[in-house]
Design a protein around this nucleic acid. Structure first.
Lengths: 190, 190
DNA sequence: GAAGTTATATGCACTTAGTGCAATATTGCA
DNA sequence: TGCAATATTGCACTAAGTGCATATAACTTC
C-alpha cells in the first residue's frame, strides 16, 4: 500500500511488491489473485460488518429503512486515512475504477440475497431488488460526494442527506404530474 | 465477435483475432485499446442515441420522467441477438463484469452532466445526481432481469415495470411508518 | 504523372501480469 | 526423531500491451 501511495499503482511492479514483502513473486499469487486484489481485499473486511449490522436491526420497519439504519452504524469504518488513500488509487486507472464499480454490484447482489432471506414473500421480490439498488446507490453517491469534498464533513452526514433526498427527492411524486414547480429549464439543445 | 462466441473470451488470443481480421497484432492496438474494448466499444454506439432521445423529450416534466421516456424510445436498440451475445460474454469473466459495471457508472455520470445542462438550478443538483443514479439503476435492473429471463418478453416491458416499481415501491412512503403491512419477516438470523 | 507529405500498417524487441509444475523448505503432530 | 501436510520458491511459459523504427498506402500539389 505504501508503495502504491508513493509511486502510483501502475508504477509498482509485482517484483517490487514481492521484494518489499520479503516473499517471492510466485508466493504473492498464493495470497492475492491479482495485483488489483490488493486494493480490493482491503474493502471486503468492512462488508461482513455491514451484513451483521443489518441483521441486528429490529424488525417492523421497511427494508430500505432497515438497510439505511444498518448502514449508518458501519459507514464510519470507511472513514480512515487508509480508505481515502485506497479510494484515490481506485480512481487512478480505468481497470481499477471498473473493479470498484463491480464491487458495488457484488455488494448489491449480496444485499439482495440478505433481504430475500429476511422478507421471503415472493411478491416483494422486485421491491427488494430495487431496495438493494437504491441502498447501495445511496452509499455510492454518499461516498462519492464525501470523497469529492476531501472528507471534510463526516461520511454519515452525506449518507443521511442522500437517503433523505431519496425520500423527498426526484421521484417523490414520480408519475404524478408535478411539472417544473417554477423552475425554468435552461437546456441548450433546441 | 464470432470467435468469442464460439470459443469464449479468454480462449481467443490477440494473435487469433488479428489473423481472423487479416491485420497484424500490432495494428489491432491502433483500433482498440485492449482486448476488452472489443466488447465495450459495441455498446457505446447506442449511447449517443440515448442522449439525443432525452434531449428531444418535451419540457414540462420532471427529470426522472424525461429520462424514463427518453430511455423507452431507445432500449429496443439493445434487443438484438448481438447484444445478447455480448451480454453473455460480459458476464463470463470477473474483469469483464467489472468493466460492464464501470460502463454503467460512466453512463450515469454522462447523464448527470446532461441533466445539469437542462436544469441548471443549483438547488436541484443533488436531486439530479439521484435521478441519474435511479434512471441508470433502473435500466441496469431491467436489462438484468430481461437477460435472466432469456429475453422472452421485450426489454421495454421490464423497463416499464422497474420504473413503475420506483414510483410505488420500496421507498414510496420512505420515512413514513409503514411496517411490514401484514407480511411476516422470516429471517433466519436471530 | 512525378515528387513529396501525411496517415496507416507492420515487425521487432521489450516489459509485465499471471499460470503450471515440480522441487524445496517449513510447520505440526504422533 | 520421523512423517505428513502445507507453505514457499524457482523456472519456464503464455499472453497482453507498449515504444520505436520502418514500410506501405493514400492523398496533395505542382
Amino acid at each position: 500500500m505504501s508503495l502504491f501511495l508513493a509511486h502510483g499503482f501502475e508504477a509498482v511492479t509485482l517484483d517490487a511488491i514481492a521484494a518489499a514483502a520479503d516473499i517471492s513473486r510466485r508466493t504473492f499469487f498464493h495470497y492475492f489473485d491479482s495485483k488489483e486484489d490488493i486494493l480490493l481485499a482491503w474493502e471486503s473486511e468492512a462488508e461482513t460488518a455491514f451484513f451483521v449490522a443489518i441483521a441486528d436491526e429490529p424488525e417492523g420497519r421497511t427494508p430500505l429503512e432497515t438497510v439505511r439504519d444498518g448502514l449508518s452504524k458501519v459507514v464510519c469504518r470507511y472513514e480512515t486515512d487508509q480508505a481515502m488513500g485506497i479510494d484515490r488509487l481506485l480512481r487512478s486507472t480505468e481497470g481499477l475504477r471498473a473493479r470498484k464499480q463491480g464491487n458495488y454490484e457484488r455488494k448489491e447482489q449480496a444485499l439482495f440475497a440478505h433481504l430475500i432471506a429476511r422478507w421471503p414473500n415472493p411478491e416483494r421480490r422486485r421491491d427488494l431488488r430495487l431496495t438493494a439498488m437504491l441502498a447501495i446507490g445511496a452509499l455510492r453517491l454518499a461516498a462519492e460526494e464525501w470523497s469529492a469534498d476531501g472528507g471534510q464533513r463526516p461520511l454519515i452526514a452525506y449518507l443521511n442527506e442522500t437517503f433523505a433526498g431519496l425520500g423527498s427527492g426526484p421521484h417523490a411524486g414520480f408519475g404524478v404530474n408535478k411539472p417544473e414547480d417554477g423552475i425554468t429549464p435552461g437546456g441548450n439543445k433546441t
